[in-house]
């Protein structure tokens, strides 16, 4: 296995820059590379990359392997997977990391089957075993109630990483690295799945997945009007409003607001849970939140086991006072 060496990170782009997940993967990749005393190679696929390879180096890459070609302007499964397959075959990395994003979820299983290796999806933690040098991949299983550590002897070792599970490095513009082109020859006439167009669906306000602050309500909110009060608080804190399953099932909130195993996975800095008891399916996907604050009248509610701060009381009385004080403090 001596020929497999180094960490490869698949870079994702967003609005002409590296997406946050790429910084997180590079931060994680650099940590693993330091433990192994190996290097991080970042594969960047796109068109008119400009400064992007340097940005990847500033965030921890030692090498940037780039495909800069108009054909690769937008993500397309067939040609992107062909490019990544080539990058992996030419470089023989020990570890390949991708984000648990729409592109990462699409690419990873294709690559793992093409390469005859295993990929662990949606990992929360990654470590290298000091003895075997195999990657220990921690995933959430049983609806978030348990964690499982996976290993595989097959090379390369592949994983996708949940967004915001890892910390990026502080960008260091003076870091030096090598930028190398990756030649991928694609016969455009032979592409079987062609991208016709990309349709963006605008979401009003801040997206739950991107929000630093989420104000979330549960069954106890009782009606759609109740959620209006949550919106006021969310607006003050420049955050987004979410919900557990019952409010969405009852039509008080749209399905796109649902957080939990069947909804969205979020990891904000601050998660304010109002009248949410904390069913495990909800906690499973909100427990990535850095700080949970709970308001619930039931002092035995599960959510208090996860929360950092809490108030036991009826939200209808607690929330207006809390909101007023927040308004005073943030000067809104």
């Amino acid at each position: 296995m001596a020929e497999y060496k180094g960490i490869m990170v698949y870079a994702e782009l967003l609005n002409g820059k590296l997406a946050p997940i790429t910084g997180e993967l590079l931060g994680c990749g650099k940590r693993l590379a330091d433990e192994l005393k190996e290097e991080v190679t970042c594969v960047i696929i796109g068109s008119q990359l400009g400064q992007i390879p340097q940005d990847a180096i500033a965030l921890g890459a030692d090498k940037a392997l780039i495909v800069d070609d108009p054909l690769f302007k937008d993500y397309q499964t067939e040609i992107y997977s062909a490019a990544m397959e080539k990058a992996i075959k030419e470089t023989s990395p020990r570890i390949v990391l991708l984000g648990q994003t729409s592109a990462g979820r699409d690419l990873s299983p294709l690559l793992s089957f093409k390469l005859g290796t295993h990929v662990a999806m949606d990992c929360l933690d990654l470590k290298v075993n000091a003895e075997t040098k195999l990657l220990e991949k921690t995933r959430s299983v049983y609806g978030g109630n348990a964690r499982a550590i996976y290993t595989s002897e097959l090379m390369p070792q592949m994983a996708t990483v949940r967004q915001k599970a890892m910390s990026p490095l502080e960008p260091n513009a003076s870091r030096k690295g090598q930028v190398m082109p990756l030649k991928v020859e694609i016969d455009a006439s032979k592409i079987k799945a062609k991208l016709i167009e990309t349709v963006k669906e605008e979401v009003a306000g801040i997206k739950l997945e991107d929000a630093a602050v989420i104000v979330s309500g549960g069954r106890g909110i009782g009606n759609p009007e109740g959620f209006k009060q949550l919106e006021v608080l969310a607006k003050l804190l420049k955050g987004a409003v979410g919900a557990s399953r019952p409010p969405c099932d009852n039509g008080w909130m749209p399905e796109t607001a649902q957080i939990g195993l069947t909804g969205k996975i979020v990891s904000p800095e601050l998660y304010i849970a109002i009248a949410i008891s904390g069913a495990s399916q909800h906690l499973a996907e909100s427990s990535g939140s850095k700080n949970i604050v709970a308001i619930n009248k039931d002092s035995e509610a599960n959510i208090f086991k996860e929360a950092r701060f809490g108030v036991v009381g009826d939200w209808k009385q607690v929330l207006p006072a809390f909101t007023d004080k927040v308004k005073e403090l943030v000067g809104g």
């Binding site: 086991k305 929360a307 701060f309 809490g310 108030v311 009381g313 009385q317 006072a321 004080k325 403090l329």
Partner: peptide, 17 residues
Amino acid sequence: CEIIGGETPVEAGANLA
């Protein structure tokens, strides 16, 4: 979890902020 109290729910809400 640090439970934030107060004389009334209103006070607890303000204390939480």
